[in-house]
Amino acid sequence: MNLLIECKKIKRTGLFPTFFIGGILAGLFPLLDMTFRAERYRKSSQPPIEILFSADWQMMAMLNTLLIIICACFLYYGEYADHAIQKMCSLPIRESRLFLEKFMLMSFLCLFVFVIEGAAFTYCALRWFGGRMDFFPLLTGVFKNFGYCFFLMLPAGLLSLLTASACGNLWTPLGIGVICLCLATMIPVNNPWLSLFPYALPFQMLAGTRAETVIFFVTAGAVECVVILLAELLFLRVRRAFA
């Protein structure tokens, strides 16, 4: 694996700043929400993390998924725009490796956004629900919750990369991704079967969810990742066979 190469490829594309700004925006969301509606939330007796997630996560998850879709499109657009992919294919590497490295880069960028968002949540919990929870249990809580959300983000990331790698331009995969995201927002979060749609999984949250449901979604997420990865490998093979 050579992640450094993929990092170098996105130099000057604005992808890093996009994720940075996206992360800040998503992090600002709970902050603003709490600033204006703290009183309403303070009345609730739920644990702070649960309050914050149920109040703000839907919006934030949408932003995160949108970021991931854009990221996937730009990562492959860079390859197709000036035929760079043809050069890559005539070097002694496998195209599947390219896909995996892009996926890893995307995961890191996503992790970066989650760190900003996690920090915002921690700050909100301390600032507005200070008395209810100690710092370290709060931190582990935030960590667990975002870890869960991160994992459930991966299938959407893989699927976006798959469409981007198949399309070879910028607008088709972006359109497909946005349409899928719109569909996903219409799916009720508490419908477990419909929520299995990869773009709906990022809207799930850990706090306040029963253990069986968590196991169900983690298993489903893992299975989806494997299936999408296999689909990409198959797609590359078929495309090569028909080239």
Partner: peptide, 25 residues
């Protein structure tokens, strides 16, 4: 190889383009 039109990453400089190939090879 150089096939048909040159292939490159437009956002990178000439040296950075070659660096990528150098690292892969």
């Amino acid at each position: 190889s150089l096939i048909e039109s040159p292939a490159f990453y437009g956002n990178l400089s000439g040296r950075e383009n070659l660096e990528i190939i150098r690292r892969i090879l």
